[in-house]
Design a protein around this nucleic acid. Sequence first.
DNA 1: CGTTATCTTGACGTACATCAAATGTCGTGG
DNA 2: CCACGACATTTGATGTACGTCAAGATAACG
Lengths: 257, 257
Amino acid sequence: MNHLFRQLDVRLNEGECLKPCSLCEVRATGVCGSVSSADLIHLAPMATIVDIDRGQTFIREGSPAEYYFTVIYGSAKLYKILADGRRQIIGFAYVGNFLGLASEENSRFSAEALEPLRVCRIARTRLTPVLVRVRSMEQRFLGLAIEELSDAHDQMALLGRKTTAERMASFILLQARRPQPRGVKFPRIHLPMSRVDIADYLGVTIETVSRSLARLKKLGVIEVPNIHEIVILDDARLRAISGGLFDPTTIYDSRTS
Amino acid sequence: MNHLFRQLDVRLNEGECLKPCSLCEVRATGVCGSVSSADLIHLAPMATIVDIDRGQTFIREGSPAEYYFTVIYGSAKLYKILADGRRQIIGFAYVGNFLGLASEENSRFSAEALEPLRVCRIARTRLTPVLVRVRSMEQRFLGLAIEELSDAHDQMALLGRKTTAERMASFILLQARRPQPRGVKFPRIHLPMSRVDIADYLGVTIETVSRSLARLKKLGVIEVPNIHEIVILDDARLRAISGGLFDPTTIYDSRTS
DNA sequence: CGTTATCTTGACGTACATCAAATGTCGTGG
DNA sequence: CCACGACATTTGATGTACGTCAAGATAACG
């Protein structure tokens, strides 16, 4: 077990074991949202809140997939490594996201915290018997897997067929799908990952990421107030540049409050 | 409904409705393999065998996803199209493969027969109530979705980070995972798809596919007796060139009988 | 406030795309 | 069975987008 994880035991005394889940802020967005209040009694005692440092790898490709994780706050990158060290980032996980679906004994990808991360962790072996009882949870798993599969297909089209400009625009729009704080004129997107991470996600180099951001900036489509922040100035233009694919409904409605 | 589909009704008289499924040659490999003989009674009456011509599109991106399909024989390509017509093939479906998982109302990709194709088709709306009863089938769906997701991640690494030579070698090895006829000295791989299809799957052009095949041939790693056939002469070398990722257990054991 | 890592910008090289032509494959009808 | 035409594939010549290498500029950190 990794000692860099700080485990905050949520199991209080007997009567209170339900509380942590019923108060959970991300319950609605995660898999647990599909579980009825009554069934939470089974779930809560198995859950452990774990804090993970930035840079810490908490899922290791090739190692036993022991746990399911739900991100409570912070973010993580998910990646695979080729024999010679080349890396492909297959996705990012944010608040409410669920991790750990695996058909084999071992995980097929790694996960590393991009910033201080808090997750809700449940041992797979302990959850399995509960799945049999709480049918809605298994259905939720299937729904999640299918959605992720669909996203993966989109990303395959991006990696196989899009130019650098299109990749960058698509990436920004994808990040903009996460809920943004309201009351701002233009969507302001926080990027917790480094340029290397973006490059490894888009299948290009850091220099290319840097240059394509510069180009979008010069076009007046975006603004880059700092390394980890992007402001979308011209949403329509950005969509046009992205070359399509991502469904048009999803950018967060940024009306001034 | 598409009149180019030839529907062979499998629903015989009452007593015999079970027969088609229980005699099905691909039942073991498909989702139906998870269904007990007793439960087949529910399944069989909903299934329709459909023949599809080569070149016929039977799943259309953006159109309602009405059916689940299991390939009985033949093969198909699955793809997405960008706004300007660029295409990314996200996978191929062969005998025993299952198609049609979708979380939304509409399909997110298209599917077209590569050769005369026979599928077993079930309306999604009709299967859903059965899923509630036949639990094992839902579990099988989840397992399939997770496996496909894992394959998609592998393909993302290929598209994002591999050279042309590595892509080609990986592709050949992937195709070699399908069962091969025994009794031959070297695995002989049948490729039902065109060079354009291979190119759109690997994220390169047809010329690049052609050239990289020529290079592998000159290296003595493979032989190309005809357009739709590849023989692996040096498996170890091919693996070395592929740059890793695909699990090493999967090439078909080609001992001489 | 210096030290180090990260990011940006520039100069140049190369793998793959593009364009073009030759060759091969397959179906059709004589 | 062979000749023909249409299309698919291969091979060659050239262009270019992105990678590589290198040097500054910014940001992060003790």
